[in-house]
Design a protein around this nucleic acid. Structure first.
Ligand SMILES: [Zn+2]
Length: 135
DNA sequence: CTTGTGAATATGACCTAT
DNA sequence: TATAGGTCATATTCACAA
């Protein structure tokens, strides 16, 4: 649940993978006025309040979706290299990982119900996960 | 060092889609 | 119906000339 402003801000931030920077101490007070003054702290608060980046359609997938729609009725000529599903896309990030890490990621993000999300303890035990852009 | 101006970016209220 | 992406007028920031 969020306002339209933060909804748009969050979506733009995630899809474009923008990395903001706080000009102060990463602890700016965010309200309807100040939210426009520090994007870093705004995004930080969005996450703190529970907004999840994994609920934003990754740009790469969104692109194939748009292309499919733009193609109109004739759904031919679809020789795109882009992934056709979230699972397919996430799998491309699995290459080169140890089987243990790979399995852990699969179990926590690919096949299970939408409500499951790793706890801080889970994340701490697999800091390697932070390397993935999609997170 | 101020001010004006137009381009580039970001925002958010409203809309559409599933 | 709930929630996510799309739209685009408006607002803000930026670059640079005067
Ligand atoms: Zn800040």
């Amino acid at each position: 649940m969020t306002c339209e402003g933060c909804k748009g801000f969050f979506r733009r931030s995630v899809t474009k993978k923008i990395v903001y920077e706080c000009k102060f101490n990463k602890c700016c007070h965010i309200d309807t006025f100040m939210r426009r003054k520090c994007q870093y702290c705004r995004l930080k608060k969005c996450v703190e309040q529970g907004m999840r980046m994994d609920l934003v359609l990754p740009e790469e997938l969104n692109k194939t979706k748009r292309e499919a729609k733009a193609a109109g009725s004739g759904s031919h000529l679809c020789s795109s290299e882009s992934p056709n599903s979230l699972s397919e896309m996430k799998l491309s990030y699995m290459e080169g990982l140890s089987p243990e890490i790979s399995e852990l990621i699969k179990r926590t993000t690919l096949n299970n119900n939408n409500n499951f999300w790793p706890t801080d303890a889970d994340l701490a035990s697999i800091s390697v996960i932070l390397k993935f852009k999609i997170f």
